[in-house]
Design a protein around this nucleic acid. Structure first.
Lengths: 124, 124, 124, 124
DNA sequence: GTGGTCTAGACCACG
DNA sequence: GTGGTCTAGACCACA
């Protein structure tokens, strides 16, 4: 029922990532209010501070607008920023390592197409 | 110049992974000696204790043998153990998340080829 | 288009300050009516309660009079009170920090003229 | 003895500003370690979390480098970044309001030079 | 020794 | 109702 937390990453990071995923998937549209800190905290049985930390990180990323006393709202343009930024980050930081691991473990054929040429694109 | 450390992972983990990679890639064959703690520490400008921790973890994984006064050596069978264990770990823990991210960012075609059926295999 | 709110200060404070500025600048003369809560709220797309809070603060400062059914009016003597009080507050609370910042950033000559002796006056 | 905190700003902000001032004033040189979170917390009788928050903000500003297990260090180039960034921020955000207030309160002659022309420079 | 994460709970300002 | 700040204290990973 209540979400389970991955031990290898701080909870606030996982909350942040969850919101990002919701924006990317269109479950949170631009202008929509984020679920309130208190609600998320109660639902997930987490300390409000932890949720707050995630939200402030989202604000720092420029994905969210604060309206005093009202809550936080998905900024217009947030999805575009995310698509561009996360792609960039993923392709330059995460994928190279993952790709190397796949090759190393001999999983290329199983997970990627038969060739591996397409797997390490330029991120121009 | 000297290798740089990824801030998102402990240094000892990165050293450990580096050795694992060398074993998988055949750069370190079974029976080969690991570079000495001292050397690695000096080359990488890292605290020897940190290197030691990495090596002890490798020992705990059953991948290397300690020979008193001589150093540590890649155990016979190490590569097989690794292939099996790391594959298992990768497919159950790392890949599902990576795969979800790829889909979310619309990178599936670019990185995985057109079909995605092959991308979430059983881990039996 | 509509005025934007500074995130570093509460909205009701900014409304209050705006009225104060109008009084000091002579745009609102003594005896003049303040714009109605309703109008301000509508124009600035702000909750009427927020405007009310600003006005009540002005009343508390002895700058305006409430006349039931008519609205709020700039009190006679308001400008003098302001000049004295705000000067005092500014010189003792705000200016010292601003002045230190100016020196620290090497902006003294640009902003204050060559000498700095005049910059930290007695607030008697 | 122990520093006193300004009530109008969060403590972590004031700690952050204090470090910034020390860098600008040359009390903390590039490469120098920041005083440890625990020390500051003890000296200032503040919760370590509060200090940590300030430090993480400094990290986010790109002023500080983290070395795992060792502490935080003033980044090379920090002072330049600060001079440029803080100047920009001050001239565009803080000074215009302060300057308007000075004029409004009739303090221009006392605080600035006789003329006020130099007081509102372009920030090109 | 260093920083980092989390909790439980209090209290505040804002709308 | 909203977010924000702070505390006291526990516990962890890292070097």
């Amino acid at each position: 029922m209540d979400p389970e937390w991955n031990d290898s990453q701080p909870i606030y990071r996982q909350i942040r990532d969850r919101v990002v995923a919701m924006i990317l998937d269109g479950l949170l549209k631009e202008g929509d209010p984020l679920p309130s800190v208190r609600n998320v905290a109660a639902d997930s049985r987490v300390n409000p501070l932890t949720v707050l930390k995630a939200y402030q990180q989202l604000e720092g990323d420029g994905l969210v607008d604060k309206k005093r006393g009202l809550g936080m709202f998905v900024k217009s343009g947030a999805r575009d920023i995310l698509l561009r930024g996360e792609r960039q980050r993923f392709l330059t930081e995460q994928w190279p390592e993952v790709h190397a691991t796949i090759l190393r473990l001999g999983l290329a054929e199983q997970l990627l197409g038969s060739g591996s040429g397409r797997a390490a694109p330029k991120e121009g």
